[in-house]
C-alpha cells in the first residue's frame, strides 16, 4: 500500500503540476475576475432602471447609454476571460 502511494506520488511530474495549476488558475481567474464586472454591470442596470422609472420618456437614451456603459464595465470581465483563455490554451 505504501508502495502504491509512492508510485502514485512519484508518477506526478512537474508538467502535471503545471497543468493542474493552469486549470486551477484559469478557474480562479474567471471566478474572481467576473465578480467585479458583474457587480458593476448590475449597478449600471439598477441605476438605469431608476432613471427609467423616474423618467419613462427618456427610456431610449438611457437604454443606449446603459448598454455602452455595461460594455465598458464588462472590459475587466473580458480581460479575465482573455487571461483564462491564455492560461488554458497558450501557456
Amino acid at each position: 500500500m505504501l508502495q502504491d502511494a509512492q508510485n502514485v506520488v512519484s508518477g506526478i511530474s512537474g508538467a502535471d503540476i503545471a497543468t493542474a495549476a493552469k486549470y486551477l488558475a484559469a478557474g480562479f481567474v474567471m471566478a474572481i475576475g467576473s465578480i467585479g464586472s458583474a457587480i458593476g454591470e448590475g449597478l449600471v442596470a439598477a441605476h438605469a432602471l431608476d432613471g427609467i422609472a423616474r423618467q419613462p420618456e427618456m427610456e431610449g437614451a438611457l437604454m443606449r447609454t446603459m448598454v455602452v456603459g455595461q460594455a465598458i464595465t464588462e472590459s475587466t470581465g473580458i480581460y479575465s476571460l482573455v487571461v483564462a483563455i491564455i492560461l488554458l490554451f497558450v501557456v
Partner: peptide, 16 residues
C-alpha cells in the same frame, strides 16, 4: 486594446 479584446472575448467566449 480593450476595444479589440471586448469584441473578441465576447464572440470567442460564446463560441467556446
Amino acid at each position: 486594446v480593450s476595444h479589440a479584446f471586448r469584441l473578441f472575448g465576447n464572440i470567442f467566449g460564446g463560441a467556446i
